[in-house]
Design a protein around this nucleic acid. Structure first.
Lengths: 257, 257
DNA sequence: AAGGCCAACTTGTTCGGACAAGTTGAAGCG
DNA sequence: CGCTTCAACTTGTCCGAACAAGTTGGCCTT
């Protein structure tokens, strides 16, 4: 028989899965949850702490708690958080910043971020791993106003999404995205450990605040055997979903002897 | 100003680093720590929870808490726990079981594990990663009496050391080890993503219970650029230390443009 | 319209207490 | 000598309370 705080934690996960609380929504205050479940604040806090560690909930003193991710829904914010997606699959995500550079935005970057051409923006190159496999190269351009907060984040931070919420109260929201395939150039092949010319899945996307202000735009390149995106045309649900590819389902072939 | 529970957590980390509590030692009971720091049990519990999450402390209801690892000392148990070593470096460790097989022990395996030849033992092949890099192939043979507990552990468990403590109350202790270099055969090169013939660092070791009963023996093969072991002949301190190699210090070369 | 202030709300921290549940070691018995 | 039992010890869970510290939104003033 699970402890009460474990039951409540599971109930909250289910509620997020079932979209009783969507990404970006505020959770009820602790006192209200305590009354609802008939327990003390301390028990609620222990339950919620588990979801916070899992990246599902963002928590800041004085502010209502917010849903940062769902295990099931594939909102765009969920796509942004590679770490949360990996966790939901029971995989270990990792990542490291290879390079950062602040320089004036090109016309294209400025347009995407709704900035004036020439405004300084932050370019960040990251490589993300999954269970010991490099699967993703991210080239992200951050708007000038968010750049200082991003620079404060440690290079191996597991979830930039969570960190930006904790530091800035920032919750990501819907943005545009484009998916296509490219072949690995010299740099990408080095970073991902694949042969040059290998196919990569490219996702170009813009992430905004919930009010629509662009935060970042990114060019993500996935090893095509590691991750694929499924698109289901169905009413009411987000048709875009990322899923593990054949290269990762069973990462290592079983030996013969 | 940090919270009191954060200060106490840091104080405990320091005490473990300074070997006030060595690996395998019991921590004082909560009530004693509370009295010592002049706080309540709840505050101590919150401090200790942080170290438990970090893998430094093992906790089981009803039993005194035990030190499982130190950030600084390099006891043999510490070498065993690749996950804890990675954490201490601020890296993300990962791992997965490639293959498990139960079969009668060879004469060599039986000898190392103090078993009769022909006793069934458990062979486990794992690949471990560090920040998205595969760096280690582990071939471990577990004694028959521990095999069921190992089989219950999920294949992507981050720290087998911690899990075996939680499930069995088992704390690893001193064992013999041999370090040499071998070249990557076909299998190892596939598993590690290196060229055949590449040099690998091989560590063969036996891990025992604190009473000296062999638990496992393992053949670990590291990418030689990723990890090296330093040996310092100094009185009183453990001369063996694992450290990150040039292949991992800065995992990805900074791009020129 | 913008900025400052403040009350209300919310989370974070700490407390002392009570009880549940698991572990351990010693003592007694066969 | 080995097994069983049990008291003592220890961690885990839950409680209600009090206060600290941060956020938010509305109101008032400029």
């Amino acid at each position: 028989m699970a402890a009460r705080h474990e039951e409540i934690a599971e109930e909250l996960r289910r509620a997020i899965d079932d979209e009783e609380y969507t990404v970006g929504a505020l959770l009820p205050p602790e006192t209200e949850l305590a009354a609802r479940y008939g327990v003390s604040r301390g028990t609620v806090r222990q339950a919620v702490a588990a979801l916070t560690v899992e990246g599902l909930i963002g928590s800041r003193q004085g502010a209502r708690r917010v849903v940062l991710a769902s295990r099931r829904s594939q909102s765009f914010a969920e796509l942004r958080s590679f770490a949360q997606w990996a966790r939901a699959m029971g995989r270990a995500a990792s990542g490291t910043v290879v390079r950062t550079e602040t320089r004036p935005a090109s016309a294209e970057d400025a347009t995407r971020l709704h900035l004036r051409t020439g405004t300084d923006v932050l370019y960040v190159l990251r490589v993300r791993g999954l269970d010991g496999e490099r699967v993703l190269v991210e080239r992200t351009v951050y708007a000038d106003w968010i750049a200082p907060a991003v620079l404060r984040i440690e290079p191996d931070c597991e979830s930039v999404t969570q960190r930006l919420y904790e530091d800035m109260g920032l919750v990501f929201a819907y943005g545009e995205h484009l998916i296509d395939a490219v072949s690995a150039g010299t740099r990408d092949s080095e970073l991902l450990g694949v042969r040059r010319g290998s196919p990569l899945l490219r996702v170009r996307r813009v992430t905004t605040t919930q009010k629509g202000r662009p935060v970042e735009w990114s060019d993500d390149r996935y090893r095509s055997d590691a991750v694929n995106f499924s698109i289901h045309n169905s009413i009411g649900s987000n048709p875009l979903a990322r899923q593990a590819g054949p290269g990762l389902r069973e990462p290592f072939a079983a030996p013969s002897g």
